[in-house]
Simulated assay, not measured.
Amino acid sequence: MEDEAPLGRGWRGTEAGWTDAAYELLIEGGVEAVKIQPLAKRLKLSRTSFYWHFADRDALLSALVRRWQDKNTGNLIRQTELPAPTIASAVLNLFDCWIAPELFDAPLDVAMRDWARTDIRLGAAFEAADASRIGAIRAMFERYGYVPEEADIRATTIYLTQVGYITLGTDETFQVRLTRIPTYLETFTGKRATDAELAAFTARHHARISR
């Protein structure tokens, strides 16, 4: 049957295939679920084929950490650095992360934060990631004329609000989020977004409106 075909090129699979499967196990069962034998079974590959791509399990876990850093922290920082005419537009660029999973993988962030509670090195990496994310948001506010102390408080408020959404698993449709965004923006920035700014945000997420 077609769904029994091995993943990847050839009998050993690919590094990306093994990493994708490890990601799935991490989301489903936490880091303790990410083990070589279950991965091989999921990919319908031999256990030894794993070692063509990774030296050991720790190397695979390191690949997951890099994926998380590049996607979540990297994309969040890049969104804060996008050109925007006003602070409201800039914050809406950041809000793209909370709407678009291709920019920010919330389940991955939850799984990594859970893992970090039992891994000292990852815990330190997560502290650094949180600091980098808040720092990028703070710098964004400062570029729009907010004094450092105010920029820090506003940045921290935005970030911790979203961490709360993610950690609590808040289930909110895009339609509901849209109705709240103008008030969130005013709360976070002290300024009102224009109708044009809100319309542009809605337009770029148009495909998600019906979900």
Rank of each mutant, 00 (worst) to 15 (best):
W52N: 15
M140G: 08
L108I: 07
P85F: 00
P182C: 06
A128R: 12
T73H: 02
T187M: 13
I137Q: 10
I87H: 01
L25A: 07
L185H: 07
W18R: 07
I120F: 10
E127G: 09
L108E: 06
A40E: 00
D152N: 13
I166D: 09
L178E: 08
T48C: 00
I134E: 11
G30P: 05
N72S: 00
Q162Y: 10
A59I: 05
T48P: 04
I209W: 04
L92A: 04
I134T: 15
A203D: 13
A207F: 03
F54L: 10
W52E: 14
T189F: 01
D130L: 11
Q69A: 06
E142T: 07
R117A: 12
A136S: 15
G8K: 08
A21T: 12
G13N: 00
Y146S: 10
G123F: 02
L45R: 07
T187R: 14
R113S: 11
D130I: 13
L178M: 12
V31T: 08
E24D: 13
E150R: 11
A84Q: 04
R138Y: 06
M112F: 01
T173L: 12
V147T: 14
D58T: 08
L26P: 02
F126K: 07
A131W: 09
D171E: 12
A200Q: 11
E15G: 08
A116P: 00
L25C: 04
E150D: 15
G135K: 04
R42G: 04
A106S: 09
T80W: 00
E32G: 08
Q37P: 00
S62R: 11
A22G: 03
A106T: 11
A106D: 11
K71Y: 03
A33V: 06
E24W: 00
F126W: 05
R67A: 03
Q162D: 03
E32C: 01
K44P: 01
V147Q: 15
G17E: 04
L108V: 03
A84R: 03
T170Y: 12
R204P: 05
L168C: 08
A116N: 06
A199K: 15
L178R: 12
D58Y: 08
V176R: 15
I27C: 06
A55E: 14
R57D: 07
E186S: 09
V176K: 14
T48K: 07
I27Q: 01
Y184Q: 13
R208F: 06
P182K: 05
A200N: 14
W52Y: 15
W115M: 00
D70F: 01
G8L: 01
D58Q: 14
P182T: 02
E172M: 15
R117S: 11
F126A: 10
L7N: 12
P83Y: 00
A33D: 02
S89E: 12
V176Q: 10
I166H: 13
L60Y: 08
D58K: 14
E186I: 02
P101Q: 02
L60G: 02
S49C: 00
L64Q: 04
G30Y: 01
N93P: 05
F174H: 14
D130V: 13
P6F: 02
A125N: 02
T156R: 15
T167N: 12
T187Q: 09
A40W: 05
R117E: 13
E127C: 07
R67Q: 04
